[in-house]
Computed example of a mutant assay.
Amino acid sequence: MIVYNVTVNVEHEATEEWINFMKNEHIPEVMATGCFSEYKLLRLTQEVADHAGITFAVQYWCESLSILNEYIAKYAPVLQEKHTKKFQNKFVAFRTILEEI
Rank of each mutant, 00 (worst) to 15 (best):
H83G: 14
E63S: 14
I67V: 13
N24Q: 14
Y75V: 05
T96P: 10
G34P: 03
G53A: 04
E11D: 11
V10G: 04
E17F: 10
E16P: 00
P77L: 02
E29Q: 14
G34K: 02
H51D: 11
Q80W: 08
S66H: 07
A57I: 08
V10N: 00
K82T: 02
Y71F: 04
V92Q: 14
E47V: 07
F91S: 10
P77T: 01
A14H: 06
L79E: 03
T45D: 10
E16I: 06
V92R: 11
V3A: 13
E81M: 13
T15P: 06
A76I: 02
C35A: 06
A32T: 12
P28I: 00
C62H: 04
L98G: 07
F21I: 02
N9S: 10
V3E: 14
L79D: 04
V78P: 02
L98I: 04
E16R: 11
E100A: 15
W18F: 03
V92L: 15
V48F: 07
T96S: 14
E81V: 05
L79S: 00
V10T: 03
K40P: 04
E38I: 01
K40T: 06
E47N: 12
V58F: 05
Y60I: 00
L68E: 00
E29F: 09
R43V: 08
R95W: 08
K90M: 15
E47L: 09
L68Q: 02
L42C: 07
Y39F: 12
I19Y: 05
M31V: 00
I101A: 14
N9A: 06
V6L: 05
F87R: 01
H12P: 03
M22Q: 04
Q80V: 07
V48C: 05
I2V: 11
F87K: 06
A93R: 13
E11P: 00
Y75R: 07
P28S: 09
Q80R: 09
F91Q: 14
Y39A: 00
H12M: 09
A57Q: 12
G34Y: 06
P28W: 02
V6P: 01
M22W: 03
M22K: 10
K85Q: 13
I97K: 06
V6T: 11
V92P: 15
T96I: 14
Y71L: 00
H51R: 10
N24R: 11
K90D: 11
K23G: 03
I19V: 15
T7F: 04
S64I: 03
K40C: 08
P77E: 01
Y60F: 08
A52N: 08
R43E: 10
V6F: 04
T7P: 09
H83I: 09
N24E: 15
M22I: 08
K85L: 13
E11Y: 12
D50Q: 08
V30K: 01
Q80M: 07
A14E: 09
V6S: 03
A76Y: 04
E17T: 08
A76F: 02
Y4Q: 02
M1Q: 12
E38A: 14
R95M: 09
F91R: 14
F91Y: 15
V3C: 11
F87D: 04
V58P: 13
